[in-house]
């Protein structure tokens, strides 16, 4: 339970368990890991946006504890952690996502190695 936002956090997602022994110890010093935690949140947001930009979505930080996902029409959704991120992405998109999708994989490759880029140019010239 978070005393500030009144949100009850029943489950810590496994991707948020980077800090050692977080789950084992019941003692936590206030602010102990705060700085690195914020830094990691920003890194994660930047990484997520690399993938999400392919779908035209954008993730941003919200109050340092949750995330906000926005699409280009301005619709927004609150995201608790990575466990629900992909479900909400699908909700906004209306289609399923898949990291094994060849289209997505192609978009993520560096531009020089992308397949099909040259074909696009040829079509434009014609």
């Amino acid at each position: 339970m978070c005393v500030l936002c009144n949100g009850s956090v029943l489950q810590v997602h496994w991707t948020d368990r980077k800090t050692k022994n977080l789950s084992q110890s019941t003692m936590q010093k206030a602010g102990e890991t705060q700085r690195s935690r914020m830094r990691e949140r920003h890194i994660r947001i930047r990484q997520s946006n690399k993938i999400l930009s392919v779908y035209g979505l954008k993730l941003s930080d919200w109050t340092g504890s949750k995330y906000i996902l926005t699409d280009k029409k301005g619709r927004t959704e609150i995201v608790q952690d990575l466990g629900v991120l992909w479900t909400i992405v699908e909700k906004l998109l209306g289609t399923p996502i898949d990291p094994l999708d060849p289209k997505l994989m192609n978009e993520l490759l560096p531009e020089s190695t992308r397949i099909g880029e040259e074909d696009k140019w040829e079509k434009n010239e014609k």
Partner: peptide
């Protein structure tokens, strides 16, 4: 490996497949 990036990829994979 970057932990948060790997978590991102794996959670996406597990979500889809």
């Amino acid at each position: 490996l970057d932990w948060s990036a790997f978590g991102l990829w794996l959670s996406m994979l597990l979500h889809a497949r």
